[in-house]
């Protein structure tokens, strides 16, 4: 009965594979993943993803190696069957397991909170954000309705545009709201996602780090033309932004004066299908 030391073999295979795979995943694959690191929020998300991948990879390798090993080594063919050993429990295994999983969970939750504390990592935080950007911010209101986004710049006379432009290297404070049903303002490369709720001011922060153009999509089912509710925005230099916004102010001046006064929430008559 020369039973090999299965556990040692599994450990060796696991260790070898993890040592090879984990650096590849973390250093080679992770940096190429969306949403990239063009903004502060996207960077928060990506570093969170990278850490998670770094932890999940060795665990996944352990699972696959363990299951593959046991399934191959302990397989039996045909009948009649042999019986396995009647082992039922082993405290020496499940206590460390419990402690280990709990420790990983605590660590992940802590790390996630740290990343979240950096201005909410681009997520919509509601009217009273728990995690804010301090200092000079540019407020931009995103107004969602079926089935388009429009943008209001309250510090530029409350002008409402159909196109989103942001200055680079400046803290932006999105105020996302809706006029009818729930939408969700999602700009993947910008790292911002915030639900647009009717009558609610949903605040999200981001600081774009480089000039780029980015896609915007509605990511909450909002009715018939949900699939067509997309848009493109630009991050441009500070001077280009100033030029653009002043042009918008001039162009839309006749319309702006008929708009309702800028407010963090609007209450139009409810959309009832029979109304």
């Amino acid at each position: 009965m020369n039973e090999p030391n299965h556990m040692r073999r599994i450990a060796i295979i696991w260790f070898a594979l993890s040592v090879i795979l984990t650096p590849i995943v973390v250093a080679v694959i992770a940096p190429t993943l969306p949403p990239g690191d063009a903004t502060s929020a996207a960077d928060n998300q990506l570093s969170d993803d990278t850490l998670l991948l770094g932890i999940v990879t060795p665990i996944a390798v352990a699972m696959i190696v363990y299951f593959a090993y046991t399934m191959i080594v302990f397989r039996r063919r045909g009948e009649p069957t042999e019986e396995g050993p009647a082992t039922r429990d082993n405290r020496a295994v499940h206590i460390p397991w419990l402690v280990g999983t709990t420790a990983i969970v605590l660590f992940l939750a802590t790390f996630g909170t740290v990343e979240l504390a950096d201005a909410g990592a681009g997520g919509g935080e509601g009217p009273e954000p728990a995690f804010k950007m301090t200092g000079d911010v540019l407020p931009v209101q995103v107004i969602a309705q079926q089935w388009e986004f429009t943008y209001r710049y309250p510090t530029y006379g409350g002008v409402e545009t159909a196109h989103l432009e942001l200055p680079v290297d400046k803290n932006v404070e999105f105020h996302v709201t809706s006029l009818d049903v729930i939408h969700s303002f999602w700009a993947p490369r910008l790292g911002v996602k915030a639900d647009a709720n009717p009558g609610v001011d949903n605040v999200a922060f981001v600081k774009p780090w480089q000039e780029m153009s980015f896609d915007i999509r509605c990511s909450e089912l909002c009715g018939l033309w949900h699939g067509y509710m997309f848009d493109t925005g630009q991050v441009v230099s500070e001077s280009a932004f100033e030029e653009w916004i002043h042009e918008q102010q001039r162009t839309f001046a006749p319309a702006t004066k008929f708009l309702p006064k800028y407010s963090t929430q609007y209450f139009p008559e409810p959309e009832r299908r029979a109304g």
């Binding site: 993803d49 992940l108 996630g112 681009g122 996602k193 990511s219």
Partner: peptide
């Protein structure tokens, strides 16, 4: 699911 439960990661993947 762990990715989705971690808020910063969830912001990127929520509703997708």
């Amino acid at each position: 699911g762990v990715f989705l439960s971690d808020v910063p990661s969830d912001v990127a993947t929520h509703g997708s």
